[in-house]
């Protein structure tokens, strides 16, 4: 499997009135062709910042350093006109709240027509038939009449399907899905996750899934990258992350899942709270909350290393954590 997207030593800082927020601190990550890579982390860990950096949609107060290489091209160095061609056509994106990404005054088919025009997509039949066909692919019942409805007339699940259909129209190689099911009910969430798996299977779409929900990760990810406070702390195949997490943070996260019953076990308490990225702790950013931390962890930032085949961890205490 080739690498479709490679992020190398990415730093993103935000200038705010309180000072410089060091949101992304040296992230290196590879997304392989045809896989579902989940980027998991808690609120404010920088996972959405990464997706925006890839699409070059960061606000003006952000400064970006490093490389984001997509199919051999460094996206950070492309002129805006080139980038516009990549956005939507090469790299598609779906968000948590599809209502805000759809224009409320246009019907579904109007907006999808736009996509065809902007990217000058080839159509075999009339554009409308093409649109209805896409809506059928994403399993929207009664597609002809749905195509003529306005976004507010659709339920949250339907809107997310429309977003996926729009994205499908240009058949991008990479899909960035930023919390795509967070606003949805579980039965609808299951439907959308199935739809994403179908994309992967039928169109060989590579998916970068950004989420805070380990359940969603367990459902569809092939590999997982765990983020904490702007750094990637662990990258591994999904089963490894759940069965054999090596970073203390990942381990705590897995033990915080509501498994068992209150009468049988207490859930893992990670003490303290996520650090303020204006003044992040030196060294490993997790060390103030880590039960294994010592002087080394406060000194320099641990490199991310392959400790088992395909399993990368950024921690000085790997091995030590397993037995303690």
């Amino acid at each position: 499997m080739g690498v479709i997207l490679k992020i190398e030593d990415l730093y993103v800082d935000f200038k705010t009135e309180r000072g410089l927020v060091k949101a992304i601190d040296g992230v290196t990550l590879e997304v392989k062709e045809g896989e579902v890579l989940a980027l998991i982390g808690e609120t404010g860990c920088g996972k959405s910042t990464i997706s925006k950096a890839i699409m070059r949609l960061l606000p003006k107060n952000a400064t970006v350093r490093g490389k984001i290489i997509y199919k051999g091209k460094n996206l950070l160095e492309l002129p805006e006109s080139e980038m516009r061609k990549i956005r939507g056509k090469e790299i598609g994106m779906i968000f948590q709240d599809p209502l805000t990404s759809l224009n409320p005054v246009f019907t579904v088919s109007n907006q999808m027509e736009e996509m065809f025009k902007i990217h000058k997509l080839p159509t075999r039949k009339s554009i409308f038939e093409e649109i209805v066909n896409l809506l059928k692919i994403v399993r929207i019942p009664d597609a002809e009449s749905r195509a003529k409805s306005y976004p507010f007339e659709l339920s949250g699940g339907m809107r997310q399907r429309v977003m996926v259909a729009m994205m499908l129209s240009s058949n991008p190689s990479l899909l960035i899905a930023d919390e795509p099911t967070t606003a949805l009910d579980v039965t609808i969430q299951a439907q959308i996750m199935n739809l994403m798996l179908e994309l992967k299977r039928n169109f060989n779409t590579t998916i970068l899934l950004i989420t805070h929900n380990p359940g969603v990760v367990a459902e569809i990810a092939d590999r997982v990258a765990v983020m904490y406070a702007g750094q990637i702390v662990e990258v591994a195949p999904v089963k490894e992350v759940f069965d054999n997490p090596l970073h203390p943070y990942t381990r705590s996260l897995m033990r915080a899942l509501p498994k068992g019953h209150k009468t049988e076990r207490e859930l893992e308490n990670i003490l303290g709270r996520v650090p303020n990225l204006l003044t992040p702790p030196p060294g490993c950013r997790f060390h103030p909350r880590c039960p294994f931390a010592d002087e080394r962890c406060t000194g320099g930032k641990p490199e991310i290393k392959e400790v088992e085949p395909g399993h990368f961890v950024a921690c000085y205490k790997v091995g030590g954590t397993r037995n303690e």
Binding site: G272, R273, T279, P281, R289, P291, T298
Partner: peptide, 10 residues
């Protein structure tokens, strides 16, 4: 465990 001093300052 090293207590974070970030929130104590202000």
């Amino acid at each position: 465990m090293v207590e974070s001093n970030v929130n104590m300052k202000k």
